[in-house]
Design a binder for these strands. Structure first.
Lengths: 138, 138
DNA sequence: TTATGTGCAAAACATTTGCAGGAGT
DNA sequence: ACTCCTGCAAATGTTTTGCACATAA
């Protein structure tokens, strides 16, 4: 699970990637499934999971393991950071400079061979700011 | 779920907190359950989940939503960062300075009221470094 | 005494997998 | 043709929840 293998170009894969590329909302697998199903009504949820996982392994998309119970996916693979709304669970990009140098700092401070890092901010989005933050915390 | 309510000091809660405080391994709920069960054999897994969640809400412990499928818990509540081994899934602390200032940078770059951030490094731990990294990726 | 907490078991989610038939190359 | 892939459904793994009984305050 690391190199591009004999990976076939199937309709399902094309459409999953197209739909994911259309949005900036970092959808969950189930949300991708819903999006794709409008065009391919007979696609299985398993296929969506298998292909999202596969594309993430190959590096065509990004798998975000952020807070909340579900994994999220992102068609933007360039390194960048995220905010997650503590109230509604929405995830947005944070467009600030990537701190490349902290990998080395972290490597010196640990026994690990550091490969990378991700920053997840938490906060309250402008939508939830208005309504006195209800409940959720998805 | 935010202020200390009429929270009773039960045996279960004391022991869960004691056991979690003994380790630095960021155990999952199930691992805490196993640790606690040695002392309280009849405790239910639901009780462990309920109390870990409750203590995290109140701020006595930290709930880590790092990569992998399970949440992890930490008795150290002071802000600090983590590394996760891409090979075996182990999570360790990374003892580097907390970048307090980036919250403001992020707030300017977004529509969010930023409350905090967490950095998760990924890497290969020294144990996995030796054996040419097997499989897992828990 | 009485509201809160617990154990147990079932339910609810999220994700993975086995398999028989289908489709890229 | 010959793999690899898909749909379907069942299995797995994690977390949550309903309820009757127990217990801290």
């Amino acid at each position: 699970m690391e190199q591009l293998p004999n990976m076939r170009l199937t309709t399902q894969r094309q459409i999953i990637l197209e739909e994911l590329s259309k949005v900036t909302s970092h959808p969950t697998a189930n949300e991708v499934y819903d999006m794709v199903r409008r065009r391919l009504p007979r696609i299985g949820l398993g296929t969506v999971y298998r292909n999202l996982e596969l594309m993430a392994d190959v590096g065509v998309i990004l798998k975000l393991e952020v807070g909340g119970t579900q994994k999220r996916f992102d068609a933007t693979v360039e390194p960048h950071y995220h905010v997650r709304c503590s109230s509604c669970g929405k995830v947005d990009d944070i467009d600030i400079a990537v701190q490349e140098q902290i990998n080395q700092v972290a490597e010196k401070a640990s026994n690990y061979k550091i490969l990378g890092h991700h920053i997840e901010f938490s906060g309250i989005c402008s939508d939830c700011m208005g309504k006195n933050q209800e409940t959720d915390i998805n």
